[in-house]
Design a protein around this nucleic acid. Sequence first.
DNA 1: CCTGAATCGGGTACGGTGTACCCAGTAATA
DNA 2: TATTACTGGGTACACCGTACCCGATTCAGG
Lengths: 254, 254
Amino acid sequence: MATPQTGAGDPTRSLELLWRDFSPAPSRPGPKPRLTVDRIVEAAIAVADREGSCFGMRSVSAELGVGAMTIYRYVPGKSELIDLMVDRVVRNDEDESLLEGLEWRARLELLAEGTWEVYDAHPWLLEINQRRPVFGPDSMAGYDFAISAFEGHDLPDREVNLVITGIMNLVTGTARQYLMRDGAEEVPVADEREWWAKQEPYLKRAFESGMYRHIQRFADESAWDVTAHQAMRYALERFLDGMAPRMEAARREA
Amino acid sequence: MATPQTGAGDPTRSLELLWRDFSPAPSRPGPKPRLTVDRIVEAAIAVADREGSCFGMRSVSAELGVGAMTIYRYVPGKSELIDLMVDRVVRNDEDESLLEGLEWRARLELLAEGTWEVYDAHPWLLEINQRRPVFGPDSMAGYDFAISAFEGHDLPDREVNLVITGIMNLVTGTARQYLMRDGAEEVPVADEREWWAKQEPYLKRAFESGMYRHIQRFADESAWDVTAHQAMRYALERFLDGMAPRMEAARREA
DNA sequence: CCTGAATCGGGTACGGTGTACCCAGTAATA
DNA sequence: TATTACTGGGTACACCGTACCCGATTCAGG
């Protein structure tokens, strides 16, 4: 049984670490610290990526080759560490000039694809309670980019907000259904097909029972051949189709 | 730190329990069982609802007034119990005749609202790994109802599937962002407003730094006054707007 | 009726988690 | 050099899911 995470520890502590300035510390007595917060965050991400599901603090310590409790000198607790990991992982070093001249739709698609890629690379993100997000420099930059898609349009701020969260939630929701890894210790159940094969006899019996009238006509086997990314793109495209007339109406007359 | 769940234990065991028939058991030696699977599932749901975040097996035992290990006589483990809870919680006892004559759009909105209500009543659902879902009688009925929305239309099976999962993921994603409870032991951080107030000084400093050019023009305070349900509805309506022309094109000529 | 067998509920214990706490060693300051 | 703040490591605790064992209970067969 995996032990996923709640995220969002003491926000003050997290925020201090997220926005910490890097001015050289005044020289102080005592041994020089062997670690840095950045190295710990980096290591924790590596561990979380590798262990598939959630990670343990002891694993992070081991990754860094230090004692179990040492990292607590740098980071107040696991929740705050997760806040740091989240902000680190959404960092985007792409050259902003590449976006020059992109339409709103292309920009929002880019937003969705970028978010998708992050989830694809770091599925453990999907197990984190993202309610009450703690905004760090990189999450902020992400939101800033999202807003840039609406330049040249007079869509009300409130609606801009709704659109962005809509897209994010759509991507997150789909990613959660398809990308989330199993807990580390569980049997990997080989592939998807085997999973459904196990259910088949029960489902078949259910169909034959005569309840579930509509599902019955749903015979086309290939209906189920949907990749995670296709599902996300389909929902996204329909959503943007629905946005199009509104964006057109809000286009600022030059 | 809460300990959310992975769901999906041994699927065979879960399926056996989900689709167990209720023919009276042949009389066997040994004392009569004091509990039933149903009572355990019911109790576990009550505990999960009350404890806000995830529940412990010992709490379920206590709720039923039995020893810690007793429930393991009825249910193989926590994961399988969760599978049962999920199927129980999506049960819908509404009279199907109420749906008579509803258009596809109204039906899909009903699907979304119903799902939303389930999440609202049982936020712990949002912490469960729903990849590799185990289909029980009630999940099946839910899917059957979803498909019924497409009656009288010749939308390809594959696309029907995409639409349904799209809506479900959209609702789940939004619910996850807004409805998810904090872990039980964490400070409740009172209200939402206090949470953002804590972040404000940092965000303000960030704005003043001059990076984040776009977020800066985003001055309308009321832009953030969005309820969870409004966010869900907005995304849903745009999605359905995008669906409308396709549904129109697929309407079966009578 | 009695006896054997199967099942039940409860208790103990194990390995895992996050982390509070203490202690010895280190290195910059006065 | 003496002081002092700070570091890293180890131990220990409470909690989790649950494997295992044992005595009590109640049926089926003789």
